[in-house]
């Protein structure tokens, strides 16, 4: 079943067109990502779906319902973590969950949500004493008070440290295992790659690519990069002979740097042969780093710009 269907969505702010005809569908049970740099129109798109903004044209359906005509029914079905969720400074964690729960017909118990989000020990803390990660986990828990079928997360890990981000990622994956549909926006490449079943890459108000992260990368024809460091300098011609290697960079003028950079279209063919090569030249492997192409590479390829 289709959870969300967006067709030809356009939204203007005065003279600026923030979203220029965006269309996509989200299947029930998947984690769908909107990836793009700041200002790409991701937030505007999800805010239209949440009912926070009225689109200038296009149609939106959430579980077959129009979020403006059936605003309250849609609001009952979705859980929203808006970008930069703020709450009154002097509200307690438990109170916030109780309060927002009371706004819905169906609500999950506060204790359960506290446990789910790992905030049990924070239950009686005031909002302004929470850390950034704790605030985001609370925001996520708030998005779940009505046990929604669709959870919309707008930049859920923005500005968090690596540890907090990992905690949040685990929670989001837990959502999927609970059968929820998740729509998430992010400008973190690895977040999209790690969490999303499908990703729509947005730039300047348009979707420029939409597929599973693996397919996006594969289809982009990008090369994997291999960095190899040995105790002995080897000329670049040796590396160039390896199978599937398209390009080699071996800074020969610097005899102290014994690192070579290879680009290959097929790691599985290149790496075993590389190790054989080192052995045959009695060179000892000191470091080996392999980088597969990322969605960032896809973005750069599609737009000719760096992702920021």
């Amino acid at each position: 079943m289709v959870a969300v269907k967006v067709e030809g969505l356009v939204k203007r702010y005065g003279q600026v067109v923030a979203v220029k005809g965006v269309s996509f569908e989200i299947a029930e049970g998947e984690i769908f990502g909107l990836l793009g740099p700041n200002g790409a129109g991701k937030t505007t798109t999800v805010e239209c779906i949440e009912g926070l903004r009225v689109p200038d044209s296009g149609t939106i359906q959430v579980f077959g319902l129009n979020p403006f005509a059936n605003s309250n029914s849609v609001k009952e079905l979705i859980g929203v973590q808006i970008q930069v969720t703020a709450l009154p400074a002097k509200i307690r964690v438990k109170e916030a969950l109780d309060l927002f729960g009371s706004f819905y017909r169906r609500c999950r118990s506060t204790d359960e949500l506290l446990k789910w989000s790992g905030l049990e020990e924070m239950a009686n803390r005031l909002y302004d004493t929470l850390s950034g990660g704790q605030k985001q986990r609370l925001a996520l828990a708030l998005a779940l008070v009505n046990d929604p079928k669709l959870v919309i997360l707008d930049e859920p890990t923005s500005g968090l440290d690596a540890h907090s981000r990992r905690q949040l990622h685990e929670l989001i994956l837990k959502l999927k295992s609970e059968g929820k549909t998740v729509l998430l926006t992010t400008h973190y490449i690895e977040e999209a790659e790690r969490l999303c079943d499908r990703v729509a890459i947005m730039d300047e108000g348009k979707i420029i690519a939409l597929d599973t992260p693996q397919n996006l990368i594969a289809q982009s024809g990008e090369l994997s990069r291999v960095e190899v460091t040995t105790d002995k300098f080897l000329p670049s011609e040796l590396f160039a002979q390896l199978p599937a290697v398209a390009m080699v960079d071996c800074p020969s003028d610097d005899r102290d740097r014994k690192t070579a950079y290879l680009w290959t279209s097929d790691l599985s063919k290149t790496v075993p042969e590389l190790l054989e090569l080192l052995k045959s030249h009695q060179a000892t492997l000191q470091n080996l780093f392999v980088a597969r192409p990322t969605l960032e590479d896809v973005f750069i390829r599609l737009t000719g710009r760096k992702f920021d």
């Binding site: 309250n72 609001k75 929203v80």
Partner: peptide
Amino acid sequence: RRYKVTPI
């Protein structure tokens, strides 16, 4: 805004 996305 957080209140606006709820049905209250």
